[in-house]
Design a protein around this nucleic acid. Structure first.
Lengths: 136, 136
DNA sequence: GCTTGACCCGGAGCCTACTCCAGGTGTCAT
DNA sequence: ATGACACCTGGAGTAGGCTCCGGGTCAAGC
């Protein structure tokens, strides 16, 4: 059970201090404790939650939906079904993102190979003229 | 060698008409032909390029970098090395995105499983008290 | 006792990538 | 010939997600 200064929270979470304050303002992060001087002291729980936020954010969940999730968490144990439903939907979403990235990546790699072929042909001394059927 | 009305181009590319006009304005798409009445007539080449743009956009390339790529394409065959370099960098970027998504997805799935376990335990009649070590 | 540095707050500003608007034009069916 | 419709233009506005600013407060070292 330790506490963390703002600088330490930045270090641990990878969010900027401005972002942490922003998340607190919009209610994505519950009001963080303050010391006597009014400075934030983050708890392990805060950092745990921020880890979850990072995970959701990095997988493309919009803030509005993270807020819905935060609300469910705040509302207690009887929302666990709903949390599962939300996370499952997001999981499917991430799955789709991965599939789409892989598909487009293959296209990019084909394009790279196409360019390599163009270079190889134009470099071959026997063949000075270059056909460029798809010029981009 | 066919031409496409704006509505057909929207259909084929999946971009909105506003987006197509926006891309033309910023130079991501070269000036599209107009008919006598001033209306756009998209060519196969335009649609091919837009396919590339969609691919790059969907894999997270920012517009500024797509503009760099567009410039290389416009500058002709001697920029093919640079195009390969750019696309290879992007390919690595996409690879990293996929890896990161997979990693975070695993964390989400663990969280879902954790919630399922909580439900299972709290549902078991022998055990009314719920331990929630990580309450989110 | 004074500066430096880390932090506070509310509010304004910014960047990206569109998206919408107002007013106008050409085409076609009724 | 009169709508309805698809489209045009330049410019303004929007949404999401931060990021920066100005003015102020404490604590610590010199």
């Amino acid at each position: 059970m330790s506490v963390y200064t703002p600088a330490q929270a930045v270090e641990e979470t990878g969010f900027s201090l401005d972002t942490l304050r922003y998340y607190e303002r919009i209610g994505l992060l519950e009001r963080v404790e303050r010391n006597a001087a009014g400075q934030r002291r983050f708890s392990d729980e805060d950092l745990g939650w921020l880890g979850m936020v990072r995970c959701l954010r990095d997988t493309g969940m919009p803030i509005a939906e993270m807020l819905r999730f935060a609300e469910l968490v705040r509302d207690g144990a009887h929302t666990i079904d709903d949390r599962i439903t939300l996370l499952e939907a997001h999981d499917r979403d991430v799955e789709a993102q991965i599939a789409q990235l892989q598909e487009k990546q293959a296209a990019i790699q084909r394009k790279i190979q196409y360019y390599r072929d163009v270079l190889a042909i134009s470099g071959a001394s026997a063949c000075r003229r270059i056909e460029e059927p798809r010029p981009h």
